[in-house]
Nucleic acid binder design. Structure first.
Lengths: 222, 222
DNA sequence: ATCTGTGAAAGCATTCACAGCC
DNA sequence: GGCTGTGAATGCTTTCACAGAT
């Protein structure tokens, strides 16, 4: 096992994709695979697959390839998906409601992510139920985070309230934020932020449609 | 004006962010700005801002900075957001419905993106209305695309149907796809694909929470 | 004096070629 | 023979330093 000192951001995104492919292979009853097959499915080069894996250790057998089960387990461990992550949603507007009802928090039979709380600042929203969880006022965030050991939060408030929400979350010790608001959040160094902004995706699409010759450079994934 | 032969993918993502910041500045009545200010807001370096802009031309005045209005217009032109983009949604499940109802297709008083059709394969869904648009059967996709000059499509079908949807869209001449299904689509060279996958974002978050020392490398935006 | 625009340098990620092991 | 693992080379993106404009 290697000490991974510095790992390309893009590698993490690809590991998530490899894990998805391996999970599907496992479902199909496939036992062994290869960097070639994974590369084809993920639409990257086989070099890339092997290099990505090499950051974390040696998981294959030369001449033979990889065991699907083993590699799937290893990736799950590396990505931290062998334990449960407790989540809350801040902002119970249309998007927050859609997320609360989202049926996909389990993945491959594992409840990896679990909703532990729903929050809003609007008293009219407090008390409403989604997916069996009652909406609480944002003032009760700290209690919830401490009680349940909340790891990450989704910010689904209007854009002008997003930084406030982030500040509140950081203050009570949430370690990761998935930000759906179209703004760049400022948070302290030790808090991770991932952006989800499908309007930005549409705008990039518009550019690439206008400039087709630029398209084939690279893939970013989100 | 320069001939942009090869432009980093990441630059496009950042231009979208600069445009957002400029739009806000304009709303606030600010007339002039600088690479420093834009850099601070977007959380990148001022070098980066100037280099990104330099791919497309010279928009500032040395010693003075940029005129907000001018730069906003230029970015809008570069990104293709000075014209309307006609869109359809394929897959009217929960997510497709949420998108059809999404109130944000206008941005800064401009209807840049307009929904021209909603499609599903399920006869029960056909005929339902969302936001004043009637759901049609996927077989009627071609007519709609030809009639309205549809530019891009959102794929919100279950993951195992996503490639079929993409094939159908490519076949009738759609130029760009925003894919919400967690799979890597295979499409012909000249079709642009952008991925939106918030579960993948959650998984990356989990990794970065587990490995805080790796966090500060780079930002991907989606 | 100030702040943009840009060639050159540095820093990273990807690709390659092949050594190492089944 | 076949396929992984990995140092070295390539190529791209970011950073830097400063020339150029007002």
């Amino acid at each position: 096992m290697k000490p991974p000192l510095s790992i390309p951001n893009a590698t993490i995104s690809r590991l998530v994709i490899y894990l998805r492919i391996l999970t599907n292979l496992e479902k199909n009853g496939t036992n062994r695979t290869s960097s070639d097959l994974l590369a084809e499915e993920a639409q990257v080069s086989a070099f890339q697959v092997r290099k990505d894996l090499a950051y974390f250790g040696r998981f294959g057998t030369r001449g033979m390839g990889y065991t699907v089960l083993t590699l799937r387990r290893e990736l799950q461990r590396i990505l931290g998906l062998n334990r449960r992550w407790n989540c809350v949603i801040v902002g119970m507007g249309r998007l927050g409601q859609a997320l609360a009802d989202y049926p996909g928090y389990m993945e491959s039979n594992l409840y990896e992510f679990e909703l532990k709380g729903l929050f809003d600042i609007d008293p009219h929203k407090v008390g409403m139920q989604f997916h069996g969880i009652t909406v609480q006022h944002i003032n009760d965030l700290e209690t919830c985070v401490r009680t349940h050991g909340v790891d990450m939060a989704f910010i689904t408030v209007p854009v002008d309230k997003a930084q406030d929400a982030a500040d509140a979350l950081v203050k009570v010790g949430v370690r990761g934020i998935l930000n759906f608001a179209p703004t760049v959040l400022e948070v302290s160094e030790e808090v991770a932020v991932e952006q989800v902004d499908f309007m930005a995706g549409m705008k990039r699409l518009a550019f690439y449609i206008l400039n087709p010759h630029l398209k084939a450079l690279k893939e970013d994934e989100e």
